[in-house]
């Protein structure tokens, strides 16, 4: 530090024992104004905590919209020093996943809508890729990651009905019937002249309402679906 150099020159001229023992402070690297480099005091440090998150912080879909799901009371930090930086991975290639034409959604859906015919493929390759990735994640049991992929697709193609179909079906399979119903209702606004979608969405709305115990609403939805069969 520069200021220290002046102080230091006194030591140099004295050639003191202190200098021999401690070395010259000229190469010290504390900040100039105040020493912020002192490690946090014990009270400020992380408590020693188990390296596993307690079960209460499991990621689950939130029951109501804008709420952060996990609410860690005592947040747990990983024990060892962690590397957070992006790891540049050179000379690696993006795996481009083959996109099946008319990828069927039927197999991933909740049982009550499983009988619907496959929905037409999106005309955007990027949407199909994300839907495929979401399917794969879901198949691996990574449901939240699958939802994240579908939301990515929704941002990129907010008027693509197939994305709403998948999101709604996934939410329904997670037991989020109310959320599924609303997503399907929104999906319906995108498909005024697409029978296969109208049928699909009404079936899904029916199933959602059934889960919600709304038998009247379910009957209405089933009647609507029948129109587009």
């Amino acid at each position: 530090m520069y200021n220290n150099q002046i102080t230091c020159s006194k030591y140099v001229s004295l050639i003191s024992l202190m200098l021999v023992l401690g070395g010259c402070a000229a190469t010290g690297y504390g900040p100039v104004v105040e020493d912020l480099s002192v490690p946090a005091r014990a009270s400020e440090r992380l408590p020693t905590l188990p390296s596993q998150l307690p079960a209460s912080i499991q990621v689950t879909p939130a029951p109501s919209a804008p709420v952060v799901t996990a609410k860690p009371k005592a947040y747990v930090a990983p024990k060892s020093v962690v590397t957070i930086t992006a790891q540049p991975v050179s000379n690696q290639v993006v795996t481009v996943i083959a996109v099946p034409e008319n990828a069927s959604v039927a197999t991933q859906e909740a049982p009550s809508v499983a009988q619907t015919p496959p929905l037409p493929a999106s005309d955007q390759a990027v949407v199909e890729q994300l839907l495929t990735e979401a399917d794969q994640l879901k198949a691996q049991g990574k449901v939240t990651e699958a939802v994240i992929q579908l939301q990515r697709a929704q941002r990129i193609a907010p008027q693509e009905p197939k994305v709403y179909a998948r999101l709604a079906a996934l939410q329904l399979s997670l037991g989020e019937a109310s959320r599924a119903e609303q997503l399907a209702l929104k999906g319906l606004t995108l498909v005024p002249n697409k029978k296969s979608y109208q049928y699909y969405f009404w079936k899904l709305i029916g199933a959602s309402r059934s889960n919600l115990g709304d038998s009247q609403g379910e009957a209405k939805a089933i009647a609507q679906a029948a129109k587009y069969k």
């Binding site: 879909p61 109501s64 919209a65 799901t69 860690p72 962690v82 959320r179 609303q182």
Partner: peptide, 17 residues
């Protein structure tokens, strides 16, 4: 997410008519 990348919270997209 945590520093090591583990997902902690996620905000699901939701709509209401």
């Amino acid at each position: 997410t945590q520093a090591n990348g583990q997902l902690l919270s996620h905000f699901p997209f939701a709509v209401r008519q």
